[in-house]
Nucleic acid binder design. Structure first.
Lengths: 328, 328
DNA sequence: CTGAAAGCGCTAACAA
DNA sequence: TTGTTAGCGCTTTCAG
């Protein structure tokens, strides 16, 4: 692969002029420009990103941290991020942390090492302390999961309100015995969704029964299946269940289908509106998060932050999508 | 952020010695090493990847091309790739082409520009001509979708055989009227799966009826729903359907559930064994592809190819997973 | 409008 | 065992 010197030689100009042509500098005469351009064509030259990046001290790479690829929730967000940054000449370095702390270090170093110009984290399991440290000297945006009162800008939805509305919907349908399938409450979203759940129950003077609250160890379908089974083992069974993730809700639906064919149906509400949620039987009532838009927003915020602008936190709108799983 | 000169100065050594410590060269005395190491600690130094990459003329980044994030099939493969390359000190640059040719160019240039050291393509829509051109001078591996008789090494499964076995399973269950939901036959896997489908029918002297073969314009659930609806509009309805992707099969299942509650059940077989396929109602019989392993294998092949080794094509084993959708 | 030259941060050949 | 130095490929100031 040719380098800039060979182009300069071939075109009979200096490397500076080649560089100017490469960067569309206005101060190049048309004649010189075309000489350089033909040299570039003839030698099939591509400027090296490595050299350019070193000189400019930027990589034009955005690091995106996510806990796992297996939850489709993240796929949609990534779509939004990718479309947004590509339009600005950036690319994404996608990193699944798998909730493994040793991986975090690799990624944080990549940023410190200048291999990435900024970070979007969607990982609730991330080491906030380290991330905040990184954020002091590098652009960082939190997407979806965030930190209350923290100093890192975020884009998210109002989980508490969304959960409240979801549970209220169940109550208004006549359900008085409502279970909650939550994930680990070390995550902010889990605490918020639980708070919304409790607010709705309290508003209607319904008791909060701990035996109907189950905390899963993950968000896979199987965790939802297991949670629902545990809840169904209770002597008194709930008539409805709110799960904090569609994946859990879909697992719950499966467990209900398997174990309760002869019983009263149990209403189910999920959270996220992943594309599967309209393919289940029954289709799933769920809180729709604007995932694609959230990705775009996070990317815009990061790009602005990288330009040195101050960015504000953003809370996007959600929407309760009512489908068959709460229609008896 | 400090650079190597500052460390050298602080430690009272030359930059070469610092570099040696950084790269664990054996020819550094323990005393010097510890001087350098404390300087590194004190200044909180991280070597710049930009400088190192330029010097070494490598980026330690692997470009992974995939058509879309929304098919979970790819997520699993990516897991395998990521785990494998991270262990070798590489990272992945994940690129969704969305089947947009202009994006392809961006990515190909990244490789030519040295921003990526090698490519794993899982994108059936990729411009093979350009990819082959790239492969002449850069390491490239095809994963899942490949080219028969082409020169780019690949890892895949035997789609024809898998499809044959899947359809044979349907026939042995007593089905004689079997529909095929295929994607666009410009894709090799689609042609191969159709060939397997036809081989099974022929073996049992069953006619191939074009009105029961539907080609979708994509692999989303909705395409499966639509395809099944079209097939169900036929005067004579099939008793079973083979879909070349779980996403399509799940959509088909949905269409069947919606439109045929009172009718004979229609058996369905999918392809991929995505995790959602055990959550549907009924659970989906499907061909399991070793997705994680395929990702690991592709990554290993690429890494070897980057070392200059010759790599052989690999065909991994598949397995028919029999679930409720073919059990009446 | 163009060229010479410095330098981004690092590694490695060579010399000592 | 360590230091000096050239140079990876590029951009950009400064001088002309």
């Amino acid at each position: 692969m040719a380098n800039i010197h060979q182009i300069a030689e071939r075109a009979g100009v200096s490397v500076a002029t080649v560089s100017r042509v490469l960067n569309n500098a206005p101060t190049v005469s048309p004649k010189t420009r075309s000489k350089v351009e033909s040299a570039i064509k003839e030698l099939n030259y591509q400027p090296s990103m490595l050299g350019r990046n070193l000189r400019n001290s930027e990589s034009r790479l955005i690091l995106v941290l996510l806990p796992t690829f297996s939850n489709p929730f993240y796929s949609e967000i990534i779509n939004g991020i990718q479309d947004t940054v590509i339009a600005k000449g950036y690319n994404i370095l996608l990193c699944e942390t798998d909730s493994r702390p040793e991986r975090e270090n690799i990624y944080f170093n990549m940023v410190k090492n200048k291999l990435a110009d900024g970070v979007i984290s969607m990982d609730p399991t991330i080491n906030m302390k380290k991330l905040k440290e990184l954020a002091e000297s590098h652009p960082v945006i939190l997407c979806s999961e965030y930190e209350e009162g923290g100093c890192i800008p975020y884009v998210t939805v109002d989980s508490e309100l969304a959960a409240y509305q979801a549970v209220k919907h169940l109550i208004q349908l006549g359900n008085e015995k409502i279970a909650l399938i939550n994930s680990d409450e070390k995550f902010l979203y889990a605490r918020q969704r639980r708070a919304g759940f409790e607010r709705a129950l309290k508003e209607f003077s319904l008791p909060i029964r701990e035996e109907w609250i189950y905390h899963t160890k993950g968000l896979d379908f199987q965790h939802g299946v297991h949670a629902m089974r545990m809840i169904l083992q209770q002597e008194e069974k709930p008539t409805a269940v709110f799960a904090v993730s569609d994946t859990l809700a879909i697992g719950a639906l499966k467990a209900i289908n398997m174990e309760l064919r002869a019983m009263e149906p149990i209403a189910v509400v999920g959270f996220d509106n992943i594309s599967f949620s309209s393919m289940t039987n029954p289709t799933l009532t769920t809180v729709s998060q604007p995932m694609y838009n959230m990705g775009c927003t996070a990317a815009d915020m990061l790009l602005n932050s990288m330009k040195g602008e101050r960015v504000e936190n953003i809370v996007l709108d959600h929407e309760l999508i009512i489908r068959e799983s709460t229609m008896g």
